[in-house]
Amino acid sequence: MSSDPFKNSEPSVHFIVPGPLETLTGGFIYDRYMVEGLKAAGRLGMVHELTGDFPRAAPYDVAAGAAVLSGLPDRVCCVIDGLALTALGQAVLQHAPRLDIVAMIHHPLADETSLSETEQAAFFEAEKVVLKEVARIVVSSRRTAERLTDFGVHPSSVYVVEPGIANWVRPGTSLDDGPIRILSVGTLTRRKGHDVALRALADCRDLDWRLDIVGDARDAAHASELTALVGELELDERVSFHGEVPEDELARMHATSGLFLSAAHHEGFGMALADAVAAGLPVLATHEGAASAVVCQAAHLVPAGEVSTLSEALRGLLQEPDARQKLAARSRAEAGGLSDWDSAAAAFQRAVDGGILQ
């Protein structure tokens, strides 16, 4: 029996995610920590892991998700990850009057890179409709909260709960001998800008560096394009695609890297950036991420999509050890301002309940 008589007095929360909760992407990692927090507080009803290619899921996968909502009892709280939310739009509209539905938005689907104008407009309208029907919205960054005003969402219904830093993060010391190891962590999708990073680094081929790219090939076609681009740029001996790696290996890579690089066109938050800052790495990233103020203060920021500007920044950092050391010092100085996952999970539960975030 719990020593706290109020431990289980709060209503249980169901969580709908668009795939296996153990998926190693920023959005799923965030969801997993929130689920673990709910479980620890005795408030987790059930995690419903949908199958299918959300947000473009097949009709039978959408029907399965709709059946989950149909099976929930009246007035129960249900959090729906944004990747599944619009696909389940009709079911959400049907059940919103009887359920307490909370949307978990990492970033709007309409902001995904390389969408056609037709796809972008379709996602925007679908999200605009469904977001007006949910009871509350949790977002992982202030930038995303601001963006949702374009969807007609009233700010009073939006709660910002920034991610924590990974449990494995420990400040490390990069190796001084040999080539400078550059670490980039992110799924192989167009939004992450790996192609921009590769072209910028190709302009620095006269310098001694190696690039380690960690992340699952979520977009198989784009992953193939990146592999072909590496060959085209004659960088085969310098660039390694590692796919998903275990936490201990990722920790080792942070500890032995001399620079963290992100060329993303857009980020819902940029958890990998926060982890790099917490690890004391010098960070070079783009303005387009929605990272916390702490990360923005620590990182050297450049415009997204500009190969020449990124190349110039890379050249300066690769040539000047002092410049990298100054950036690393900024990371160490700002790292203390990053949240931990326990605090994030507690804030998430207050947001789900519509409480005041501290």
Rank of each mutant, 00 (worst) to 15 (best):
S2W: 10
P5E: 14
F6D: 15
P11L: 01
I16E: 10
I16R: 01
T23D: 13
L24V: 13
I29N: 11
I29Y: 07
R32P: 09
M34C: 08
M34D: 07
V35H: 02
L38F: 08
A40E: 11
L44Y: 01
V47A: 02
P55W: 02
P55A: 05
R56N: 13
A57G: 10
A57D: 12
A63Q: 08
A63N: 08
A66D: 15
V68M: 07
L69N: 01
S70Q: 14
G71T: 03
R75Y: 12
C77F: 04
I80W: 12
L83D: 09
L83T: 01
T86D: 11
L88F: 07
A91K: 04
A91G: 10
V92T: 06
H95S: 05
P97Q: 10
R98H: 05
P108G: 05
L109D: 05
E119C: 09
E119F: 09
A122T: 15
K128N: 03
K132W: 04
K132T: 10
E133R: 11
R142C: 00
D150M: 12
D150A: 15
F151P: 03
P155H: 10
S156R: 13
E162F: 05
R170D: 14
G172M: 14
T173P: 02
T173Y: 07
L175Q: 12
D177C: 10
I182D: 08
V185H: 04
T187L: 14
T187W: 07
H194K: 05
D203T: 13
R205I: 12
R205Q: 11
L207M: 15
L207H: 09
D208H: 02
D212R: 11
G215T: 03
H222K: 00
H222Y: 15
A223L: 11
S224H: 01
L226R: 05
V230M: 01
S240Q: 12
H242G: 00
G243V: 06
P246K: 02
T256Q: 15
S257P: 04
A264H: 06
A264W: 00
H265W: 15
G268F: 00
G270T: 03
L273A: 12
V277M: 10
A278M: 14
G280Q: 11
L281Q: 08
P282L: 00
S292T: 13
A293D: 15
A298D: 05
A298K: 02
A299L: 08
H300L: 14
A304E: 09
G305V: 06
S308M: 07
S311Q: 02
S311L: 00
R315F: 09
E320S: 15
P321H: 06
A323N: 04
A328W: 14
A328Q: 14
R330C: 08
R330I: 03
S331Q: 05
G337L: 05
W341H: 03
W341T: 04
S343N: 10
A344W: 11
A345R: 10
A347C: 07
I356A: 15
Q358C: 02
